[in-house]
Design a protein around this nucleic acid. Structure first.
Length: 275
DNA sequence: TTCTTAACCTGGAGGC
DNA sequence: TGCCTCCAGGTTAAGA
């Protein structure tokens, strides 16, 4: 499931190939995944546009196009954006295919069809719910220890739920939330507003460390994630707790436990991460 | 306003 | 082998 590191790796891959490409045709194979405008208008309006740049905000990919338009893509659970130089669609779960004038293509594939695409004027980006409410990003000056201290103090939810809320911190998902909390030695069910200053400092450092490590490893691939060239990431080889329930904690040897928190599978060490 | 829960969706695993 | 049930999780609407 693509989180900030995976989306950033995809962005970097796409940025190598897409700028300057003219979209000759957009084939919408799964209309329900087009958020706006209508699927017909989406295909019609994007034709002929030239991709100028590829950016990212949280887990959103933003493809800035000519004529002041922007294509917003959220991959959700199983979405992927793969550039194919020969234009041949090999993904059996292709949902939208963008064919370029030079014969290459960009394929949006998505097994579970949770992903969403929207085409809108750049000036309307603020109207896209979710995108304009995003909190600060890890690894930026805006995401500071002071910000985290003030933010957690206002919320009584479990700290894991807090981390998954994109309005608090943008880009963290289930994998990196579990890994950051393990690294910081904080129990996922701990109430956010009870964190001490020192714990906020540890959590802030841990979030930045796991996100940076995920990017350095090319992302985490468990099932569906692929980078922009269809390749896999390697960060799953360095995870301490995620998908490791029953295995020995790398720090103390206690078996990693799994619990349900906010409807999400949550892994933690019962000894290293105290409530 | 804040928080919780369920729904969306489909492939794969496990049980029978 | 085939059928059924459950699970995975990012986001958001609905309800408390």
């Amino acid at each position: 499931m693509p989180e900030l590191p995976e989306v950033e790796i995809i962005r970097r891959g796409l940025a190598k190939h897409l700028p300057g490409k003219r979209i000759a045709e957009a084939e919408v194979l799964r209309p329900s995944q087009i958020l706006r405008p209508t699927p017909e208008a989406f295909a019609r309006e994007i034709e002929g546009k030239v991709i100028e740049s590829v950016r990212r905000r949280g887990k959103y990919l933003l493809l800035f196009l000519s004529e002041a338009l922007v294509l917003v893509v959220h991959l959700r659970m199983t979405g992927r954006l793969v550039y194919v130089a020969d234009g041949e669609v090999r993904d059996p779960y292709a949902r939208v295919v963008f064919s370029f004038a030079d014969g290459s293509a960009l394929v949006f594939g998505d097994v579970r069809t949770f992903g969403r695409l929207a085409l809108l004027p750049v000036g309307d980006l603020d109207t896209l719910r979710g995108l304009h409410e995003l909190g600060p990003e890890p690894l930026t000056p805006e995401f500071s220890v002071m910000y985290l201290q003030k933010a957690v103090a206002r919320h009584r939810v479990p700290i894991k739920t807090f981390l998954l809320d994109q309005r608090r911190v943008a880009g963290i998902g289930n994998i990196y939330a579990d890994e950051a909390l393990f690294r910081a030695g904080i129990h996922p069910a701990r109430r956010a507003d009870t964190l001490m200053a020192a714990e906020c400092g540890r959590l802030h450092a841990a979030v930045n460390e796991v996100i940076a490590a995920g990017i350095a490893d090319g992302g985490t691939t468990f099932r569906d994630y692929q980078n922009a060239e269809g390749g896999k990431g390697h960060h799953q080889e360095h995870l301490a707790v995620y998908e490791r329930e029953g295995e020995a904690c790398p720090r103390c040897g206690t078996p990693i436990m799994k619990m349900k928190l906010g409807g999400r599978g949550t892994r933690y060490c019962p000894k290293c991460q105290k409530l």
